[in-house]
């Protein structure tokens, strides 16, 4: 496997009285797309939020390249080059599409070429440029959330369930967009849709009860039905 861009070692996270992550060890290889799979409540979202510093790890180490980030504040982590798309997309409904993207451009100037690339990936962004983000459909909101994450080149993108609640036609469009995004940045994506995960993932990690129980290449997991059954309780083929 290529060298890790993001490494979690022995990460524990508590939310109030609940112990959610129990020593997570995870390496996200430089370039490519790593899928983080697991049943509901396995700790996938908590893992992403812990990396972003939105929930503080109570123990362990989180490294982005050479930087130890687990004690840093969320804005500092973001400024190291991590973009985050939460499960609820986190778009600003009262702002226009343009304002949402402008906010994500750190120098308050959007690169024209980059913008043209985004419009090519998601034509709806151009169409609704001055429309309120709150008026967009669910799929368009997800496109906006992802556009906002890529408005400037980031080292790593953390995306939580990008296909949640989307129609099959939009998921197909998303798969094509993610193929493009993979060329631009390293991605760690939490996903429940196995078809989407298999279509895009280069690497995979599976979580269960707050721990990583499997990590390897997606192709290996996709080829091994008994492993899928054991780890996920389902066969990937049954979800196509």
């Amino acid at each position: 496997m290529p060298e890790a861009l993001l490494s979690l070692a022995g990460v524990n996270t508590h939310i109030g009285q609940y112990h959610i992550l129990h020593g997570v060890d995870l390496n996200v290889p430089q370039s490519g797309l790593t899928m983080l799979l697991g049943r509901n409540g396995a700790g996938k979202t908590t893992a992403l939020r812990t990396v972003m510093g939105l929930w503080r790890a109570s123990a362990g180490s989180i490294r982005l390249g050479d930087n130890e980030i687990h004690q840093r504040a969320t804005p500092d982590i973001a400024r190291l080059g991590i973009a985050y798309v939460p499960e609820n997309m986190g778009i600003f409904a009262g702002l226009t599409v343009r304002e949402n993207l402008l906010l994500a451009a750190r120098e308050h100037v959007m690169d024209e070429k980059r913008l043209a690339w985004i419009f090519e990936l998601f034509p709806a962004m151009k169409k609704f440029w001055n429309g309120l983000a709150g008026n967009l459909s669910g799929g368009q909101k997800q496109m906006l959330a992802i556009s906002r994450a890529v408005i400037e080149r980031r080292k790593l993108m953390l995306i939580d369930e990008p296909t949640k609640g989307l129609a099959p036609a939009i998921i197909t469009a998303m798969i094509e967009a993610f193929k493009e995004l993979k060329r631009d940045s390293t991605l760690l994506v939490v996903e429940q849709n196995f078809h989407f995960a298999r279509s895009l993932g280069d690497y995979v990690a599976v979580m269960d009860s707050g721990r990583i129980v499997y990590a390897g290449r997606m192709a290996e997991l996709a080829a091994d039905e008994s492993l899928q059954q054991r780890l996920l309780g389902l066969s990937l083929d049954s979800h196509q």
Binding site: M52, L54, A73, T74, P75, A78, R79, Y84, P86, G90, F92, A93, G94, L95, E99, L103, A104, R106, R148
Partner: peptide, 15 residues
């Protein structure tokens, strides 16, 4: 305006 709606997301954008 963004912070009034979702302060956590504003922080996640680096502010």
């Amino acid at each position: 305006r963004a912070g009034v709606e979702n302060p956590e997301m504003v922080e996640s954008l680096g502010y």
